[in-house]
Design a protein around this nucleic acid. Structure first.
Lengths: 233, 233
DNA sequence: TGCATATTTCTTGTCGACAAATTAAATACA
DNA sequence: TGTATTTAATTTGTCGACAAGAAATATGCA
């Protein structure tokens, strides 16, 4: 990728770290860098046309979010997906779905709903177009927008992290996303948004819970199928 | 502190970052570095007797946990405590109390309870000795041990962060911790531990919730009092 | 040939120095 | 005297180089 190194001289001071961080983060979440991939600092510094210092800073941040694992004095690699403790993940995901949606119903402002509805339209379009990748990302963006409307940075922070992890997992199985299930998700989204708009916290929470459990059970099915196919990570 | 610089030559490769990180983290949480304090890299590098590189790495990690704020190309400082959005904090704290205790009741193993009971004994001793600082730290350690028994790293991660934040807040008001309220906490802890040991998830969750709300309402009283005293941060 | 030891290679961790951005100080001007 | 502009000083961001630790390779010995 020489268009990255060519940016060497026109780069603003301090922006280098963010660029590297963003690109690597996306590549990890999109599985372009699959779990277990070795991360070589000099290689990256050559690729991005900068010294190892900003690269290392980006890597430290990625490690802080659990996206890469660093073995002291030894290699660093993309974090494996922990299929063994997946139930922990699902527990946390469902709870964050519930609580962020509930808080959104409580604290949202009119302008929040505009963003949410726009993203829901994008999600519906992705479903209509059978674009599984777009479904995954717009779905995450939608639920994150709802969470933002709840205005609790602690929950949105954890939820962001969980949705990112989910992006990696779903990426593995996006082929299986071609049945009619996504249409049901569109309807459920509409119901959730309506409950949020009506400030019905109880209903919003219940719908979010059912929606989340729906997704989880679906993903779990995919995981079981994956295990049978001996997918290794 | 020359005993820190004197470690210059006997330092193991790679340990420098951890040392700086741990020390700064404690100093921030104990309010030895109060919110808003400027963080100077060269000053720290002189203090710890190492170059700016490992110092910066430690600072990046601290920034990742929200303990310091970095202004690009400008100074970096200890993060202020956000009193305006305190309710977000309390919401998250109460929920984590509830969910981690509930999971502990579900998933704990016998050896977990030994650790928990030992920490509860420490907490009781701190209460008996009227040592407010020890109360704060042993209380956090106790609840974190309970959370660990629940075996959900996502929840324990967020809970750790929240308890740390709480350490900073309580530190502000530890003088006010001299009434008989802590004794009640000891009893509540005993009840919670008993419910966890009995694997009564519902009871454990309810007790944890009441316990957490107890603490929150108490801290809120302190905060109101603090505002009246015009404490600035 | 098989195994232990020594050597080389490779990657990371740390360092000192320089350059850019910002703030503080100093100077010029009305 | 007060304000605007220029200059100096301070602090961060980046760089290239070196050293330490671990892995890979080569060497020595039975």
């Amino acid at each position: 990728m020489d268009n990255e190194t060519s940016l060497r001289n026109e780069r603003k001071r301090g922006s280098g770290v963010k660029v590297v961080y963003d690109i690597l983060r996306d590549e990890i979440l999109d599985l372009e860098l699959p779990p277990g991939s070795p991360i070589d600092e000099v290689q990256l510094s050559e690729r991005f046309g900068m010294s190892r210092t900003p690269i290392r800073e980006a890597l430290v941040r990625l490690a802080g979010e659990g996206l890469i694992d660093t073995l002291p004095n030894r290699s660093t690699m993309v974090s494996p997906i922990d299929f063994l403790n997946m139930h922990s993940y699902f527990d946390a995901l469902v709870l964050m779905y519930r609580v962020t949606t509930q808080l959104a119903a409580k604290y949202h402002r009119p302008e929040d709903l505009e963003v949410v509805r726009a993203l829901q339209a994008e999600f519906a379009a992705a479903v209509e177009a059978q674009d599984a990748l777009a479904m995954i990302s717009t779905n995450a963006a939608l639920h994150l927008a709802i969470a933002e409307a709840g205005r609790n940075p602690y929950f949105t922070g954890l939820f962001t992290r969980l949705l990112n992890e989910g992006r990696r997992i779903l990426r593995l199985y996006y082929q299986s996303y071609n049945d009619r299930l996504p249409r049901r998700f569109v309807e459920e989204h509409d119901e959730i948004i309506a409950a949020v708009a009506a400030r019905d916290t109880e209903l919003a929470e219940r719908l979010a819970r059912e929606h989340a459990e729906q997704i989880v059970s679906q993903v779990q099915k995919l995981l079981v199928r994956g295990d049978r196919l001996d997918i290794q990570l």
